[in-house]
Design a protein around this nucleic acid. Structure first.
Lengths: 278, 278
DNA sequence: AAATTGAGTTCCAAATAATGGAACATCAAT
DNA sequence: ATTGATGTTCCATTATTTGGAACTCAATTT
Protein backbone atom coordinates (compact mmCIF):
# COMPACT_ATOMS: atom_id res chain seq x y z
CA UNK A 1 0.00 0.00 0.00
CA UNK A 2 1.14 3.50 -0.75
CA UNK A 3 -0.58 5.14 2.20
CA UNK A 4 0.25 3.05 5.23
CA UNK A 5 -1.26 5.41 7.76
CA UNK A 6 -4.30 6.30 5.75
CA UNK A 7 -6.38 3.25 5.03
CA UNK A 8 -9.75 4.96 5.11
CA UNK A 9 -8.96 7.06 2.07
CA UNK A 10 -10.92 6.61 -1.14
CA UNK A 11 -9.10 5.30 -4.18
CA UNK A 12 -7.41 8.36 -5.70
CA UNK A 13 -9.09 9.98 -8.74
CA UNK A 14 -6.92 7.95 -11.13
CA UNK A 15 -6.95 10.41 -13.97
CA UNK A 16 -4.93 8.42 -16.43
CA UNK A 17 -4.50 10.75 -19.31
CA UNK A 18 -3.03 10.06 -22.70
CA UNK A 19 -1.09 12.52 -24.83
CA UNK A 20 -4.30 13.66 -26.48
CA UNK A 21 -5.95 14.44 -23.18
CA UNK A 22 -8.45 11.63 -23.30
CA UNK A 23 -9.04 9.89 -20.06
CA UNK A 24 -8.79 6.23 -20.77
CA UNK A 25 -11.22 4.36 -18.65
CA UNK A 26 -10.70 0.71 -17.98
CA UNK A 27 -9.91 -0.74 -21.34
CA UNK A 28 -7.69 -3.18 -19.49
CA UNK A 29 -4.82 -4.85 -21.21
CA UNK A 30 -5.73 -3.47 -24.60
CA UNK A 31 -5.71 0.07 -23.30
CA UNK A 32 -2.26 -0.31 -21.85
CA UNK A 33 -0.91 -1.78 -25.05
CA UNK A 34 -2.43 0.97 -27.15
CA UNK A 35 -1.03 3.56 -24.76
CA UNK A 36 2.41 2.18 -25.51
CA UNK A 37 1.66 2.27 -29.21
CA UNK A 38 0.55 5.87 -28.83
CA UNK A 39 3.82 6.79 -27.15
CA UNK A 40 5.79 5.46 -30.07
CA UNK A 41 3.42 7.02 -32.60
CA UNK A 42 3.58 10.40 -30.92
CA UNK A 43 7.36 10.57 -30.93
CA UNK A 44 8.83 12.01 -34.06
CA UNK A 45 11.66 9.57 -34.26
CA UNK A 46 12.05 5.89 -33.53
CA UNK A 47 12.37 5.19 -29.79
CA UNK A 48 14.61 2.69 -28.12
CA UNK A 49 13.49 0.41 -25.32
CA UNK A 50 14.87 2.59 -22.57
CA UNK A 51 13.32 5.74 -23.99
CA UNK A 52 9.90 4.12 -23.89
CA UNK A 53 10.57 2.70 -20.45
CA UNK A 54 11.19 6.21 -19.17
CA UNK A 55 7.85 7.68 -20.32
CA UNK A 56 5.53 4.71 -19.98
CA UNK A 57 5.25 3.92 -16.35
CA UNK A 58 5.45 0.22 -16.73
CA UNK A 59 7.99 -2.13 -15.19
CA UNK A 60 10.68 -3.42 -17.52
CA UNK A 61 9.37 -6.94 -17.90
CA UNK A 62 5.84 -5.80 -18.59
CA UNK A 63 6.83 -3.20 -21.11
CA UNK A 64 9.02 -5.67 -22.88
CA UNK A 65 6.19 -8.09 -23.37
CA UNK A 66 3.81 -5.37 -24.47
CA UNK A 67 6.28 -4.23 -27.09
CA UNK A 68 6.91 -7.78 -28.23
CA UNK A 69 3.21 -8.36 -28.66
CA UNK A 70 2.76 -5.14 -30.58
CA UNK A 71 5.64 -6.08 -32.87
CA UNK A 72 4.32 -9.57 -33.34
CA UNK A 73 0.98 -8.11 -34.35
CA UNK A 74 2.60 -5.74 -36.83
CA UNK A 75 1.44 -2.62 -35.03
CA UNK A 76 5.03 -1.72 -34.25
CA UNK A 77 8.16 -2.59 -36.11
CA UNK A 78 11.44 -3.32 -34.43
CA UNK A 79 14.49 -2.13 -36.33
CA UNK A 80 17.77 -3.96 -36.45
CA UNK A 81 19.13 -1.27 -34.14
CA UNK A 82 16.50 -2.03 -31.49
CA UNK A 83 14.46 1.02 -32.29
CA UNK A 84 10.70 0.85 -32.41
CA UNK A 85 8.55 2.61 -34.99
CA UNK A 86 4.93 2.38 -36.05
CA UNK A 87 4.18 -0.71 -38.09
CA UNK A 88 2.73 -0.84 -41.55
CA UNK A 89 -0.16 -3.03 -40.56
CA UNK A 90 -1.72 0.21 -39.36
CA UNK A 91 -1.69 1.45 -42.93
CA UNK A 92 -4.05 -1.29 -43.92
CA UNK A 93 -6.43 -0.48 -41.10
CA UNK A 94 -6.30 3.22 -41.84
CA UNK A 95 -6.94 2.71 -45.52
CA UNK A 96 -10.18 1.00 -44.52
CA UNK A 97 -11.04 3.64 -41.98
CA UNK A 98 -10.63 6.33 -44.58
CA UNK A 99 -12.34 4.61 -47.48
CA UNK A 100 -15.22 3.53 -45.29
CA UNK A 101 -15.80 6.90 -43.70
CA UNK A 102 -19.16 8.06 -44.90
CA UNK A 103 -18.82 11.52 -43.51
CA UNK A 104 -15.72 12.06 -45.63
CA UNK A 105 -17.35 10.59 -48.72
CA UNK A 106 -20.39 12.78 -48.39
CA UNK A 107 -18.33 15.87 -47.73
CA UNK A 108 -15.91 15.39 -50.59
CA UNK A 109 -17.82 17.05 -53.44
CA UNK A 110 -18.55 20.01 -51.21
CA UNK A 111 -14.87 20.37 -50.39
CA UNK A 112 -14.08 20.42 -54.08
CA UNK A 113 -16.76 22.97 -54.70
CA UNK A 114 -15.45 25.21 -51.98
CA UNK A 115 -11.97 24.88 -53.38
CA UNK A 116 -13.21 25.88 -56.82
CA UNK A 117 -14.91 28.94 -55.35
CA UNK A 118 -11.94 30.14 -53.33
CA UNK A 119 -8.90 28.67 -55.02
CA UNK A 120 -7.38 27.91 -51.64
CA UNK A 121 -6.80 24.76 -49.64
CA UNK A 122 -9.84 23.19 -48.01
CA UNK A 123 -9.64 20.95 -44.96
CA UNK A 124 -12.12 18.59 -43.35
CA UNK A 125 -11.57 17.38 -39.80
CA UNK A 126 -13.22 15.91 -36.74
CA UNK A 127 -12.77 16.42 -33.03
CA UNK A 128 -11.25 13.65 -30.99
CA UNK A 129 -10.69 14.61 -27.38
CA UNK A 130 -8.78 17.84 -27.45
CA UNK A 131 -7.28 17.17 -30.86
CA UNK A 132 -8.64 17.66 -34.33
CA UNK A 133 -7.89 14.92 -36.82
CA UNK A 134 -7.89 15.86 -40.48
CA UNK A 135 -9.90 13.53 -42.66
CA UNK A 136 -9.41 15.08 -46.06
CA UNK A 137 -8.03 18.01 -47.92
CA UNK A 138 -8.32 19.53 -51.38
CA UNK A 139 -5.64 21.79 -52.68
CA UNK A 140 -4.41 23.24 -55.92
CA UNK A 141 -1.06 21.60 -56.26
CA UNK A 142 -2.01 17.99 -55.96
CA UNK A 143 1.70 17.26 -56.12
CA UNK A 144 1.85 17.71 -52.37
CA UNK A 145 2.44 14.36 -50.75
CA UNK A 146 -0.40 12.12 -49.84
CA UNK A 147 -0.94 11.71 -46.14
CA UNK A 148 0.70 15.10 -45.78
CA UNK A 149 -2.14 16.27 -43.63
CA UNK A 150 -4.67 13.50 -43.53
CA UNK A 151 -4.53 11.70 -40.22
CA UNK A 152 -2.58 14.55 -38.68
CA UNK A 153 -3.59 15.50 -35.18
CA UNK A 154 -3.50 19.17 -34.20
CA UNK A 155 -4.62 21.04 -31.09
CA UNK A 156 -8.25 22.18 -31.00
CA UNK A 157 -7.61 25.60 -29.54
CA UNK A 158 -5.55 27.12 -32.31
CA UNK A 159 -7.00 25.72 -35.51
CA UNK A 160 -10.07 26.87 -37.37
CA UNK A 161 -11.58 23.41 -37.61
CA UNK A 162 -10.81 22.81 -33.95
CA UNK A 163 -12.49 25.95 -32.70
CA UNK A 164 -15.43 25.47 -35.02
CA UNK A 165 -15.86 21.99 -33.61
CA UNK A 166 -15.67 23.25 -30.04
CA UNK A 167 -18.40 25.75 -30.76
CA UNK A 168 -20.75 22.92 -31.62
CA UNK A 169 -20.24 21.08 -28.35
CA UNK A 170 -22.79 21.33 -25.57
CA UNK A 171 -21.44 23.39 -22.70
CA UNK A 172 -20.63 20.58 -20.29
CA UNK A 173 -18.56 18.75 -22.88
CA UNK A 174 -16.94 21.97 -23.99
CA UNK A 175 -15.93 22.68 -20.42
CA UNK A 176 -14.45 19.22 -20.04
CA UNK A 177 -12.42 19.48 -23.21
CA UNK A 178 -11.15 22.94 -22.43
CA UNK A 179 -10.13 21.75 -18.98
CA UNK A 180 -8.04 18.99 -20.53
CA UNK A 181 -6.08 21.31 -22.81
CA UNK A 182 -2.47 22.06 -22.08
CA UNK A 183 -2.06 25.39 -23.79
CA UNK A 184 1.03 26.17 -25.77
CA UNK A 185 1.68 29.56 -27.33
CA UNK A 186 2.61 28.65 -30.90
CA UNK A 187 2.55 32.26 -32.12
CA UNK A 188 1.89 35.70 -30.71
CA UNK A 189 -1.78 35.35 -31.62
CA UNK A 190 -2.36 31.94 -30.03
CA UNK A 191 -5.21 31.90 -27.53
CA UNK A 192 -3.38 30.58 -24.54
CA UNK A 193 -5.87 30.65 -21.69
CA UNK A 194 -9.19 28.89 -21.11
CA UNK A 195 -10.87 32.28 -20.65
CA UNK A 196 -9.78 33.67 -24.01
CA UNK A 197 -10.80 30.43 -25.69
CA UNK A 198 -14.21 30.30 -24.06
CA UNK A 199 -14.87 33.92 -24.97
CA UNK A 200 -13.94 33.24 -28.59
CA UNK A 201 -16.19 30.17 -28.68
CA UNK A 202 -19.02 32.50 -27.74
CA UNK A 203 -18.29 34.71 -30.73
CA UNK A 204 -18.08 31.69 -33.00
CA UNK A 205 -21.45 30.49 -31.82
CA UNK A 206 -22.91 33.92 -32.55
CA UNK A 207 -21.40 34.32 -36.01
CA UNK A 208 -21.27 30.71 -37.17
CA UNK A 209 -17.63 31.01 -38.22
CA UNK A 210 -14.29 30.31 -36.58
CA UNK A 211 -11.07 31.98 -37.67
CA UNK A 212 -7.45 31.05 -37.30
CA UNK A 213 -5.58 34.35 -37.40
CA UNK A 214 -2.04 33.01 -37.55
CA UNK A 215 -2.62 31.31 -34.23
CA UNK A 216 -0.96 28.03 -35.04
CA UNK A 217 1.55 28.88 -37.73
CA UNK A 218 2.76 32.37 -38.49
CA UNK A 219 1.62 33.45 -41.94
CA UNK A 220 -1.28 31.03 -42.14
CA UNK A 221 -4.90 32.11 -41.86
CA UNK A 222 -8.18 30.29 -42.18
CA UNK A 223 -11.99 30.51 -41.92
CA UNK A 224 -13.90 27.52 -40.69
CA UNK A 225 -17.45 26.42 -39.93
CA UNK A 226 -18.74 23.60 -37.74
CA UNK A 227 -20.31 20.39 -39.00
CA UNK A 228 -21.96 18.03 -36.58
CA UNK A 229 -24.41 15.23 -36.45
CA UNK A 230 -26.36 14.66 -33.31
CA UNK A 231 -27.54 11.46 -34.87
CA UNK A 232 -24.15 10.02 -35.71
CA UNK A 233 -22.57 11.51 -32.64
CA UNK A 234 -19.62 13.43 -33.98
CA UNK A 235 -18.43 16.97 -34.26
CA UNK A 236 -16.05 18.46 -36.79
CA UNK A 237 -15.65 21.21 -39.26
CA UNK A 238 -14.26 22.39 -42.55
CA UNK A 239 -12.03 25.30 -43.40
CA UNK A 240 -10.42 27.33 -46.14
CA UNK A 241 -6.76 28.02 -45.45
CA UNK A 242 -4.14 30.17 -47.09
CA UNK A 243 -1.05 32.30 -46.67
CA UNK A 244 -1.52 35.68 -45.01
CA UNK A 245 0.27 37.59 -47.76
CA UNK A 246 -2.33 36.48 -50.25
CA UNK A 247 -5.39 36.53 -48.06
CA UNK A 248 -6.45 39.71 -46.33
CA UNK A 249 -8.75 39.58 -43.32
CA UNK A 250 -11.43 41.11 -45.58
CA UNK A 251 -11.08 38.39 -48.18
CA UNK A 252 -11.22 35.78 -45.44
CA UNK A 253 -14.35 37.46 -44.10
CA UNK A 254 -15.92 37.36 -47.54
CA UNK A 255 -15.46 33.58 -47.66
CA UNK A 256 -17.15 33.05 -44.33
CA UNK A 257 -20.59 32.67 -45.85
CA UNK A 258 -19.30 30.22 -48.47
CA UNK A 259 -17.80 28.04 -45.77
CA UNK A 260 -21.00 28.16 -43.73
CA UNK A 261 -23.01 27.23 -46.79
CA UNK A 262 -20.74 24.30 -47.56
CA UNK A 263 -21.02 23.09 -43.97
CA UNK A 264 -24.78 23.42 -44.18
CA UNK A 265 -24.92 21.52 -47.44
CA UNK A 266 -22.86 18.68 -46.00
CA UNK A 267 -25.13 18.41 -42.97
CA UNK A 268 -28.15 18.41 -45.24
CA UNK A 269 -26.68 15.64 -47.38
CA UNK A 270 -25.95 13.61 -44.32
CA UNK A 271 -29.48 14.06 -43.15
CA UNK A 272 -30.74 12.91 -46.51
CA UNK A 273 -28.47 9.86 -46.77
CA UNK A 274 -28.39 8.75 -43.18
CA UNK A 275 -31.23 10.64 -41.64
CA UNK A 276 -34.48 8.76 -42.02
CA UNK A 277 -34.23 6.98 -38.68
CA UNK A 278 -36.20 7.49 -35.51
CA UNK B 1 -18.60 -31.94 -28.83
CA UNK B 2 -18.41 -32.15 -32.57
CA UNK B 3 -16.91 -35.63 -32.71
CA UNK B 4 -18.81 -37.73 -30.23
CA UNK B 5 -17.29 -41.04 -31.23
CA UNK B 6 -13.75 -39.83 -31.48
CA UNK B 7 -12.45 -38.86 -28.09
CA UNK B 8 -8.93 -40.19 -28.49
CA UNK B 9 -8.07 -37.65 -31.14
CA UNK B 10 -5.27 -35.16 -30.52
CA UNK B 11 -6.17 -31.56 -30.08
CA UNK B 12 -6.38 -30.24 -33.64
CA UNK B 13 -3.28 -28.40 -34.95
CA UNK B 14 -4.76 -25.08 -33.83
CA UNK B 15 -3.73 -23.14 -36.87
CA UNK B 16 -5.22 -19.88 -35.82
CA UNK B 17 -5.03 -17.94 -38.99
CA UNK B 18 -6.06 -14.39 -39.66
CA UNK B 19 -7.53 -13.20 -42.92
CA UNK B 20 -4.04 -12.42 -44.19
CA UNK B 21 -2.78 -15.90 -43.52
CA UNK B 22 -0.48 -14.94 -40.67
CA UNK B 23 -0.41 -17.37 -37.84
CA UNK B 24 -0.85 -15.34 -34.73
CA UNK B 25 1.32 -16.75 -32.04
CA UNK B 26 0.57 -15.97 -28.43
CA UNK B 27 0.02 -12.27 -28.42
CA UNK B 28 -2.53 -12.93 -25.73
CA UNK B 29 -5.34 -10.54 -25.12
CA UNK B 30 -3.97 -7.97 -27.53
CA UNK B 31 -3.86 -10.49 -30.33
CA UNK B 32 -7.47 -11.44 -29.83
CA UNK B 33 -8.59 -7.83 -29.78
CA UNK B 34 -6.65 -7.01 -32.92
CA UNK B 35 -8.10 -10.07 -34.60
CA UNK B 36 -11.54 -8.62 -33.96
CA UNK B 37 -10.39 -5.28 -35.30
CA UNK B 38 -9.08 -7.05 -38.38
CA UNK B 39 -12.43 -8.71 -38.98
CA UNK B 40 -14.17 -5.36 -39.02
CA UNK B 41 -11.42 -3.78 -41.11
CA UNK B 42 -11.53 -6.57 -43.66
CA UNK B 43 -15.25 -6.33 -44.22
CA UNK B 44 -16.29 -3.86 -46.83
CA UNK B 45 -19.24 -2.56 -44.95
CA UNK B 46 -19.97 -1.85 -41.33
CA UNK B 47 -20.75 -5.03 -39.39
CA UNK B 48 -23.32 -5.49 -36.67
CA UNK B 49 -22.66 -7.33 -33.45
CA UNK B 50 -24.18 -10.56 -34.61
CA UNK B 51 -22.27 -10.53 -37.88
CA UNK B 52 -19.01 -10.29 -36.00
CA UNK B 53 -20.13 -12.89 -33.51
CA UNK B 54 -20.65 -15.31 -36.36
CA UNK B 55 -17.13 -15.04 -37.79
CA UNK B 56 -15.06 -14.44 -34.68
CA UNK B 57 -15.22 -17.53 -32.61
CA UNK B 58 -15.62 -15.80 -29.33
CA UNK B 59 -18.47 -16.17 -26.87
CA UNK B 60 -20.98 -13.36 -26.79
CA UNK B 61 -19.90 -11.80 -23.52
CA UNK B 62 -16.24 -11.83 -24.45
CA UNK B 63 -16.78 -10.38 -27.88
CA UNK B 64 -18.94 -7.69 -26.47
CA UNK B 65 -16.25 -6.55 -24.07
CA UNK B 66 -13.57 -6.69 -26.75
CA UNK B 67 -15.67 -4.51 -29.01
CA UNK B 68 -16.44 -2.10 -26.19
CA UNK B 69 -12.76 -1.75 -25.42
CA UNK B 70 -11.87 -1.19 -29.05
CA UNK B 71 -14.54 1.47 -29.33
CA UNK B 72 -13.44 3.11 -26.11
CA UNK B 73 -9.92 3.27 -27.47
CA UNK B 74 -11.10 4.80 -30.74
CA UNK B 75 -9.92 1.89 -32.85
CA UNK B 76 -13.49 1.10 -33.79
CA UNK B 77 -16.45 3.36 -34.00
CA UNK B 78 -19.95 2.35 -33.07
CA UNK B 79 -22.68 3.89 -35.17
CA UNK B 80 -26.06 4.92 -33.90
CA UNK B 81 -27.48 1.88 -35.67
CA UNK B 82 -25.18 -0.48 -33.73
CA UNK B 83 -22.85 -1.00 -36.63
CA UNK B 84 -19.11 -1.13 -36.11
CA UNK B 85 -16.59 0.43 -38.44
CA UNK B 86 -12.91 1.24 -38.24
CA UNK B 87 -12.15 4.23 -36.03
CA UNK B 88 -10.38 7.37 -37.02
CA UNK B 89 -7.77 7.05 -34.33
CA UNK B 90 -6.11 4.64 -36.70
CA UNK B 91 -5.66 7.46 -39.17
CA UNK B 92 -3.40 9.23 -36.75
CA UNK B 93 -1.29 6.14 -36.21
CA UNK B 94 -1.10 5.46 -39.91
CA UNK B 95 -0.08 8.99 -40.72
CA UNK B 96 2.88 8.49 -38.43
CA UNK B 97 3.66 5.07 -39.84
CA UNK B 98 3.74 6.48 -43.32
CA UNK B 99 5.63 9.66 -42.63
CA UNK B 100 8.16 7.82 -40.50
CA UNK B 101 8.80 5.06 -43.00
CA UNK B 102 12.36 5.46 -44.16
CA UNK B 103 12.09 2.91 -46.88
CA UNK B 104 9.29 4.88 -48.48
CA UNK B 105 11.14 8.17 -48.10
CA UNK B 106 14.30 6.81 -49.69
CA UNK B 107 12.39 5.18 -52.52
CA UNK B 108 10.25 8.18 -53.37
CA UNK B 109 12.57 10.05 -55.78
CA UNK B 110 13.26 6.82 -57.60
CA UNK B 111 9.55 6.21 -58.02
CA UNK B 112 9.16 9.66 -59.52
CA UNK B 113 12.06 9.07 -61.83
CA UNK B 114 10.61 5.79 -63.00
CA UNK B 115 7.29 7.48 -63.56
CA UNK B 116 8.96 10.16 -65.66
CA UNK B 117 10.69 7.53 -67.75
CA UNK B 118 7.60 5.44 -68.42
CA UNK B 119 4.68 7.81 -68.01
CA UNK B 120 2.76 5.08 -66.22
CA UNK B 121 1.74 4.47 -62.62
CA UNK B 122 4.49 3.34 -60.27
CA UNK B 123 3.80 1.37 -57.08
CA UNK B 124 5.93 0.59 -54.05
CA UNK B 125 4.91 -2.20 -51.68
CA UNK B 126 6.12 -4.59 -49.03
CA UNK B 127 5.30 -8.17 -48.18
CA UNK B 128 3.38 -8.90 -45.03
CA UNK B 129 2.51 -12.54 -44.63
CA UNK B 130 0.84 -13.54 -47.85
CA UNK B 131 -0.32 -10.05 -48.66
CA UNK B 132 1.42 -7.12 -50.24
CA UNK B 133 0.76 -3.74 -48.70
CA UNK B 134 1.22 -0.71 -50.90
CA UNK B 135 3.30 2.04 -49.36
CA UNK B 136 3.29 4.62 -52.11
CA UNK B 137 2.32 5.34 -55.64
CA UNK B 138 3.07 7.92 -58.27
CA UNK B 139 0.71 8.49 -61.13
CA UNK B 140 -0.11 10.98 -63.79
CA UNK B 141 -3.49 12.20 -62.71
CA UNK B 142 -2.76 13.22 -59.18
CA UNK B 143 -6.45 13.98 -58.92
CA UNK B 144 -7.01 10.36 -58.01
CA UNK B 145 -8.01 10.11 -54.39
CA UNK B 146 -5.42 9.88 -51.70
CA UNK B 147 -5.37 6.58 -49.87
CA UNK B 148 -6.79 5.11 -53.04
CA UNK B 149 -4.12 2.47 -53.06
CA UNK B 150 -1.79 3.24 -50.19
CA UNK B 151 -2.40 0.87 -47.35
CA UNK B 152 -4.31 -1.47 -49.60
CA UNK B 153 -3.63 -5.13 -49.08
CA UNK B 154 -3.59 -7.43 -52.11
CA UNK B 155 -2.68 -11.09 -52.58
CA UNK B 156 0.99 -11.88 -53.23
CA UNK B 157 0.46 -14.48 -55.90
CA UNK B 158 -1.21 -12.34 -58.56
CA UNK B 159 0.47 -8.96 -58.28
CA UNK B 160 3.80 -7.89 -59.69
CA UNK B 161 5.09 -6.49 -56.45
CA UNK B 162 3.91 -9.58 -54.60
CA UNK B 163 5.62 -12.07 -56.88
CA UNK B 164 8.77 -9.95 -57.00
CA UNK B 165 8.83 -9.98 -53.21
CA UNK B 166 8.31 -13.73 -53.08
CA UNK B 167 11.27 -14.22 -55.38
CA UNK B 168 13.51 -12.53 -52.82
CA UNK B 169 12.50 -14.82 -49.97
CA UNK B 170 14.74 -17.69 -48.90
CA UNK B 171 13.24 -21.04 -49.89
CA UNK B 172 11.96 -22.11 -46.46
CA UNK B 173 10.07 -18.87 -45.97
CA UNK B 174 8.82 -18.93 -49.53
CA UNK B 175 7.48 -22.42 -48.97
CA UNK B 176 5.74 -21.34 -45.77
CA UNK B 177 4.09 -18.37 -47.40
CA UNK B 178 2.97 -20.32 -50.46
CA UNK B 179 1.51 -22.96 -48.18
CA UNK B 180 -0.56 -20.32 -46.42
CA UNK B 181 -2.11 -18.95 -49.60
CA UNK B 182 -5.71 -19.64 -50.41
CA UNK B 183 -5.71 -19.28 -54.16
CA UNK B 184 -8.52 -17.53 -55.92
CA UNK B 185 -8.77 -17.30 -59.69
CA UNK B 186 -9.37 -13.59 -60.28
CA UNK B 187 -8.94 -13.82 -64.05
CA UNK B 188 -8.20 -16.49 -66.66
CA UNK B 189 -4.48 -15.80 -66.27
CA UNK B 190 -4.30 -16.03 -62.48
CA UNK B 191 -1.76 -18.54 -61.23
CA UNK B 192 -3.99 -20.65 -59.08
CA UNK B 193 -1.83 -23.51 -57.84
CA UNK B 194 1.29 -23.62 -55.65
CA UNK B 195 3.13 -25.45 -58.43
CA UNK B 196 2.51 -22.81 -61.07
CA UNK B 197 3.49 -20.11 -58.61
CA UNK B 198 6.71 -21.81 -57.53
CA UNK B 199 7.70 -22.39 -61.16
CA UNK B 200 7.10 -18.73 -61.93
CA UNK B 201 9.15 -17.66 -58.90
CA UNK B 202 12.02 -19.62 -60.41
CA UNK B 203 11.76 -17.63 -63.63
CA UNK B 204 11.59 -14.37 -61.70
CA UNK B 205 14.73 -15.28 -59.82
CA UNK B 206 16.49 -16.00 -63.10
CA UNK B 207 15.38 -12.85 -64.90
CA UNK B 208 15.15 -10.39 -62.02
CA UNK B 209 11.67 -9.26 -63.05
CA UNK B 210 8.14 -10.26 -62.16
CA UNK B 211 5.17 -9.65 -64.42
CA UNK B 212 1.48 -9.36 -63.81
CA UNK B 213 -0.14 -10.37 -67.09
CA UNK B 214 -3.72 -9.45 -66.26
CA UNK B 215 -3.62 -11.94 -63.41
CA UNK B 216 -5.41 -9.83 -60.85
CA UNK B 217 -7.55 -7.47 -62.88
CA UNK B 218 -8.44 -7.98 -66.52
CA UNK B 219 -6.86 -5.28 -68.66
CA UNK B 220 -4.12 -4.41 -66.19
CA UNK B 221 -0.49 -5.35 -66.73
CA UNK B 222 2.71 -4.62 -64.83
CA UNK B 223 6.44 -5.23 -64.55
CA UNK B 224 8.01 -5.37 -61.13
CA UNK B 225 11.37 -5.93 -59.47
CA UNK B 226 12.22 -6.99 -55.92
CA UNK B 227 13.67 -4.73 -53.27
CA UNK B 228 14.89 -6.21 -50.02
CA UNK B 229 17.12 -5.44 -47.14
CA UNK B 230 18.67 -8.29 -45.24
CA UNK B 231 19.79 -5.71 -42.75
CA UNK B 232 16.41 -4.15 -42.06
CA UNK B 233 14.62 -7.44 -42.47
CA UNK B 234 11.99 -6.69 -45.05
CA UNK B 235 11.07 -7.68 -48.56
CA UNK B 236 9.08 -5.72 -51.09
CA UNK B 237 9.15 -4.44 -54.60
CA UNK B 238 8.21 -1.75 -57.04
CA UNK B 239 6.30 -1.90 -60.27
CA UNK B 240 5.12 0.00 -63.33
CA UNK B 241 1.47 -0.64 -64.08
CA UNK B 242 -0.80 0.27 -66.94
CA UNK B 243 -3.77 -0.70 -69.07
CA UNK B 244 -3.25 -3.54 -71.52
CA UNK B 245 -4.60 -1.58 -74.49
CA UNK B 246 -1.82 0.93 -74.13
CA UNK B 247 0.97 -1.35 -73.04
CA UNK B 248 2.04 -4.22 -75.25
CA UNK B 249 3.98 -7.12 -73.79
CA UNK B 250 6.99 -5.84 -75.73
CA UNK B 251 6.76 -2.37 -74.22
CA UNK B 252 6.42 -3.91 -70.78
CA UNK B 253 9.47 -6.04 -71.51
CA UNK B 254 11.41 -2.94 -72.53
CA UNK B 255 10.71 -1.35 -69.14
CA UNK B 256 11.99 -4.36 -67.24
CA UNK B 257 15.54 -3.07 -67.09
CA UNK B 258 14.37 0.37 -65.92
CA UNK B 259 12.47 -1.19 -63.07
CA UNK B 260 15.43 -3.36 -62.10
CA UNK B 261 17.68 -0.32 -62.17
CA UNK B 262 15.32 1.68 -59.97
CA UNK B 263 15.13 -1.22 -57.52
CA UNK B 264 18.90 -1.44 -57.51
CA UNK B 265 19.28 2.28 -56.94
CA UNK B 266 16.87 2.18 -53.99
CA UNK B 267 18.76 -0.68 -52.39
CA UNK B 268 22.02 1.17 -52.91
CA UNK B 269 20.60 4.32 -51.30
CA UNK B 270 19.39 2.31 -48.35
CA UNK B 271 22.79 0.78 -47.96
CA UNK B 272 24.34 4.25 -48.01
CA UNK B 273 21.91 5.78 -45.54
CA UNK B 274 21.35 2.89 -43.21
CA UNK B 275 24.13 0.55 -44.10
CA UNK B 276 27.23 1.36 -42.14
CA UNK B 277 26.49 -1.07 -39.34
CA UNK B 278 28.06 -4.38 -38.41
C1' DA C 1 -52.72 -5.78 -26.21
C1' DA C 2 -49.96 -9.76 -25.11
C1' DA C 3 -46.59 -12.92 -26.63
C1' DT C 4 -42.62 -13.95 -29.25
C1' DT C 5 -38.50 -13.32 -31.41
C1' DG C 6 -34.07 -11.28 -32.22
C1' DA C 7 -30.43 -8.34 -30.97
C1' DG C 8 -27.62 -6.36 -27.69
C1' DT C 9 -25.99 -5.98 -22.86
C1' DT C 10 -24.71 -7.25 -18.09
C1' DC C 11 -23.16 -10.39 -14.44
C1' DC C 12 -19.88 -13.21 -11.76
C1' DA C 13 -17.33 -17.57 -10.25
C1' DA C 14 -13.78 -20.17 -12.60
C1' DA C 15 -9.98 -20.17 -15.67
C1' DT C 16 -6.38 -17.82 -17.66
C1' DA C 17 -3.25 -14.28 -18.64
C1' DA C 18 -0.68 -10.16 -17.07
C1' DT C 19 2.40 -8.42 -13.67
C1' DG C 20 6.87 -7.01 -11.90
C1' DG C 21 10.99 -7.90 -9.32
C1' DA C 22 15.10 -9.94 -9.98
C1' DA C 23 18.36 -12.67 -12.41
C1' DC C 24 20.39 -13.28 -16.87
C1' DA C 25 22.41 -12.07 -21.49
C1' DT C 26 24.64 -9.16 -24.77
C1' DC C 27 27.44 -5.67 -26.39
C1' DA C 28 30.33 -1.43 -26.40
C1' DA C 29 33.56 1.06 -24.18
C1' DT C 30 37.04 1.38 -21.04
C1' DA D 1 39.47 -8.56 -18.96
C1' DT D 2 36.20 -5.46 -16.43
C1' DT D 3 32.63 -2.36 -16.26
C1' DG D 4 28.34 -0.22 -17.39
C1' DA D 5 24.41 0.21 -20.13
C1' DT D 6 20.92 -1.88 -22.53
C1' DG D 7 17.92 -5.40 -23.68
C1' DT D 8 15.78 -10.08 -22.48
C1' DT D 9 13.91 -13.97 -19.84
C1' DC D 10 11.87 -16.23 -15.82
C1' DC D 11 8.10 -17.46 -12.65
C1' DA D 12 5.31 -17.16 -8.29
C1' DT D 13 1.84 -13.74 -7.28
C1' DT D 14 -1.90 -11.08 -8.66
C1' DA D 15 -5.33 -9.19 -11.56
C1' DT D 16 -7.91 -9.75 -15.83
C1' DT D 17 -10.25 -12.24 -19.05
C1' DT D 18 -13.46 -15.73 -19.92
C1' DG D 19 -17.96 -17.64 -21.12
C1' DG D 20 -22.38 -19.41 -19.84
C1' DA D 21 -26.56 -17.76 -18.49
C1' DA D 22 -29.77 -14.40 -17.24
C1' DC D 23 -31.55 -9.92 -18.44
C1' DT D 24 -33.25 -5.77 -21.18
C1' DC D 25 -35.23 -3.60 -24.93
C1' DA D 26 -37.38 -3.01 -29.36
C1' DA D 27 -39.53 -4.83 -33.20
C1' DT D 28 -42.65 -8.13 -35.02
C1' DT D 29 -46.32 -11.55 -34.83
C1' DT D 30 -50.46 -13.66 -32.89
Amino acid sequence: MDNPGDEAVEAPPQVDETASGRKHADTGTLGKAIAVLDIVASADQPMRFTDILAVSNQPRGTLHRQLSNLVEEGLLSLGRDHSYSVGIRLLKFAARAWAGNQFRAIAEPHLRNLHDLTGETVHLGVLRGNEVIYLDKVESRQAVRMYSQIGNASPVYCTGVGKAGLSALPDPELKAVVASIKFHRFTDSTLATPEELIREIGEIRASGNAYDREEHEPGIRCVAAPIYSEDRGFVGGLSVTGPAYRISPELLESWAVLVRNAAGAIMEDMGARLGPRT
